[in-house]
């Protein structure tokens, strides 16, 4: 699965990081404790989080995460968006919750 599938197939709204769209997604990870994410998320994971401050971009960039998905239409800070554009980390927004996001990935064939 490629990151831009989230836009084209799932109709998630792309908020930032357009230049990272062609990268591959290897897995899906959901957690809001940043140190836990730091030690457990894997290279190429799409990351679901309700945290929206600028630090999530640093984490995604340090771990080579594929992208960040913010569920349930939570508003994302403007400096987070600016930083994600700079670093090329795509951030998506969707109105659905984490469970439904996982369901979509499963139905799209991710295991």
């Amino acid at each position: 699965m490629v990151i831009k599938d989230l836009k084209d197939r799932f109709h998630f709204k792309l908020l930032a990081g357009e230049k990272g769209l062609d990268n591959e997604i290897n897995g899906l990870y959901c957690c809001d404790l940043l140190s836990w994410v730091m030690s457990h998320a894997k290279d190429g994971d799409a990351w679901i989080t309700v945290q929206t401050h600028i630090n999530i971009v640093a984490i995604a960039s340090l771990l080579n995460l594929a992208c960040i998905i913010v569920p349930e239409s939570i508003e994302v800070d403007s400096d987070t968006v600016a930083k994600a554009d700079e670093e090329g980390i795509p951030i998506f927004s969707t109105d659905i919750n984490s469970f439904k996001i996982f369901t979509k990935f499963y139905e799209a064939g991710m295991r």
Binding site: D32, L33, L34, S35, W36, M38, S39, T49, Q51, H53, N55
Partner: peptide, 16 residues
């Protein structure tokens, strides 16, 4: 509330 302060910083540093 920002997701920090889980008490994992030093253990993560040691582990890595």
């Amino acid at each position: 509330e920002l997701g920090f302060g889980a008490g994992m910083g030093l253990p993560n540093m040691k582990k890595s």
